[in-house]
Design a protein around this nucleic acid. Structure first.
Lengths: 140, 140
DNA sequence: CTTGACCCTGTACCTCACTACAGGGTTTAA
DNA sequence: TTAAACCCTGTAGTGAGGTACAGGGTCAAG
């Protein structure tokens, strides 16, 4: 396969040209060689690198984490990969717990609110106004 | 109780002065009367309004949703309160499902990665590089 | 040889919810 | 009376992850 122009590479990865340039600025994709006239010519493996990025994003890794994972990909420390994954997993689990707490409160309030009558009798509004049964911890 | 200056009100609600001004600009807190010299003088009930805002935030409502809830608080439609809560609840539930899917993939990959050996044999890196067992749906 | 599709750089803008000044004026306690 | 502590306005910056031009240059088909 031959080198790809930025447009072809972006299309092959299913992203836009600007996003590709953004990833280059962010150091996720290496600066490719250029033609005489300044056009970027990407080696075809860059598609795999982009796919790697997109999959990691789908798993909720931040671009900073992805940058780390990429740097480990070719000859890094397995324990490091582990550490990053573990840390991300813990964050995800914490976020799930936060959201479940929120969901429980909301579901409870909702179920206890009859759809009729004056609004100030609504448990949702009352809970917000009076503060009973609402929690201290912060969601992100 | 007497009217409060912005600093006292902010302190009473446990927030900073600038945040208070921000909420005023955003229409969550009404513009209070002023002294001759332009100082804001808040009616003491404003503390309750701020607490309402903070509680709703703790439940993950956006400022736009909170603005709606506040406007319904004094004489709105109960069905509307319901609608907003329901819609937020559904969002929270969707987010939980996304994160659980992510958690499951991460936990599985992590458990299958021995901490030794070359990095390219690590299922985490392999999954990202080769794309097997990763999902299509996007998290937000 | 012209037209349109492509590529370049740089900068500005988007969302969300703040946060941080700069450059003043006012109030209060010692 | 003077210094600290407070208040005002307006504007700009943060972080994350992009998106959208403007104002050019280049390449391929007809």
């Amino acid at each position: 396969m031959k080198p790809l122009t930025s447009g072809r590479l972006a299309a092959a990865a299913g992203i836009g040209n600007e996003k590709l340039r953004f990833y280059e600025r962010e150091g996720l994709v290496a600066e490719p060689p250029r033609t005489e006239s300044g056009y970027r010519l990407y080696p075809p493996q860059t598609i795999d690198r982009l796919r790697f990025i997109l999959r990691a994003k789908a798993l909720g890794f931040s671009l900073a984490e992805i940058r780390e994972l990429l740097s480990l990909q070719d000859g890094g420390d397995k324990a490091e990969v582990h550490r990053i994954t573990r840390s991300h997993l813990e964050e995800v689990e914490a976020r799930i717990r936060d959201l479940q707490r929120i969901r429980d409160v909301l579901a409870d309030l909702e179920s206890r609110c009859s759809r009729r009558g004056p609004v100030h009798t609504c448990p949702i509004i009352r809970a917000l106004a009076d503060g009973n049964e609402i929690l201290e911890e912060s969601p992100r």
